[in-house]
């Protein structure tokens, strides 16, 4: 099939960008979306033009590197990662708009590549359990009820791609932050730092310039790993509880 792509091109962080139109021909429905961009890039290189820069790595939907807004939707029309989106989701003659994640906390580096280090800083603020190597008791010393373990796992599957922020009309990072807080706060091992974790991570999240939550649910609808919207409510509960217990 033949497609028209309109892609955001921006040569550097401080440059202004624009949508540029490209034609790609002979696209196979079996190609992944990124493979379609590979073809475009090979073509651009041979024509002496700059290829489109985009982040990608594992291409199997787990590393969280890739991410672009395709026709207005984070990761495109299917609820999965961009690398797992295939061209069979499109039709011959389609016009496809491709833009980077847009958020003040995710400045564009080049074309479709954005800086998501704000996510790392949120984790650094408390998204861990302090268990230095060598200090651990036997793994069976503390049983974890299966529902708690499952809930922790469900939240722990977050891949940190940033689609939640990109999809949120407010550019909010609540779903990302809540996933890590819920993963750790529900486990017995996470109890000692339960309050400081939520307070510190939320403070950092706010300081990074993410927007506030208005419960639109767009984040959960775009999340390729299906982190539920209820995680945000749980985080709010944890936050209110922590604020009561440790006022500052």
């Amino acid at each position: 099939m033949n497609l028209t792509l309109r892609i955001w091109r921006q040569s550097g962080p401080d440059e202004s960008g624009e949508m540029v139109t490209y034609q790609v021909t002979d696209v196979s429905p079996d190609m992944s979306f990124l493979e379609m961009l590979d073809i475009l890039n090979e073509d651009l290189i041979l024509r002496g033009e700059q290829p489109v820069a985009f982040d990608h790595d594992c291409r199997e939907g787990i590393c969280g590197s890739c991410g672009m807004v395709i026709n207005g939707s984070a990761h495109g029309p299917v609820q999965t990662t961009t690398c797992q989106l295939h061209m069979r989701s499109f039709n011959d003659g389609d016009v496809i708009d491709i833009e980077p994640w847009r958020a003040a906390a995710f400045p564009v580096i080049k074309d479709l590549v954005v800086d998501r280090s704000a996510f790392d800083r949120i984790i650094q603020a408390g998204g861990y359990i302090s268990a230095p190597t060598g200090t651990a008791p036997d793994a069976h010393a503390v049983p974890v009820p299966k529902p708690d373990a499952d809930l922790a796992f469900e939240n722990a599957t977050c891949i940190g791609c940033g689609a939640c922020v990109a999809a949120c009309p407010n550019g909010s990072a609540m779903l990302f932050t809540s996933a890590k807080i819920n993963h750790l706060n529900v486990l017995p091992q996470g109890q000692p730092e339960r309050e400081s974790r939520v307070l510190d991570m939320v403070t950092t999240m706010d300081a990074e310039g993410f927007g506030g939550c208005t419960n639109t649910g767009e984040c959960a609808a775009a999340c390729p790993k299906g982190i539920p919207l209820a995680s945000i409510a749980t985080m709010n509960r944890e936050f209110l509880r922590a604020a009561r217990k440790a006022p500052r």
Partner: peptide, 19 residues
């Protein structure tokens, strides 16, 4: 106000109506 500042540059394409 905060939400507008969180996305200074808007998307060119229209967001699909999900909510």
């Amino acid at each position: 106000h905060r939400d507008i500042h969180a996305r200074p540059q808007r998307y060119r394409s229209k967001r699909p109506w999900r909510a």
